[in-house]
Design a protein around this nucleic acid. Sequence first.
DNA 1: TGCGATTTGTACGTATGTATA
DNA 2: GTATACATACGTACAAATCGC
Lengths: 70, 70
Amino acid sequence: MPKHIQLADYLRARIDDGTYPPRAKLPSEITLVQETGFARDTVRKAMALLIDEDRVYVVRGLGTFVGPAN
Amino acid sequence: MPKHIQLADYLRARIDDGTYPPRAKLPSEITLVQETGFARDTVRKAMALLIDEDRVYVVRGLGTFVGPAN
DNA sequence: TGCGATTTGTACGTATGTATA
DNA sequence: GTATACATACGTACAAATCGC
């Protein structure tokens, strides 16, 4: 399994189990890079999947948050 | 004809016909990937041809531009 | 007002693995 | 075997938005 799929699966599970409740801020890309050891590119691909699924939303300059956006 | 040759031909024609005048920024690799449906590797090979011909020059972190560089 | 830190956005550079013709 | 093509992955650089001081 590609790393970005694995990371997306992991984050999705943390959202589902309440580790990151609605409106919660996910760890920043850099934090995830440091924690996972993956490249930022890989982390961003994982995020892109969750964004595409409307599981999270992004506020540029602030961070990425658990959806819904409204 | 290989795809990267086709794409290089296409971009060269767009430079020649003024679609991309000198100093103009070419579409990013990612944009070309999306527009052409080719892989990034293929897009990069097309760009490499134009760079080798000194038709375009690259500014890392910024983009690829129609030459000359000076 | 402005500065700096944080964070996401964009973009090119490089390498590796796999598949196909 | 080589060239083409695609996907994944990591590296590096610059740009823009937000916030706190």
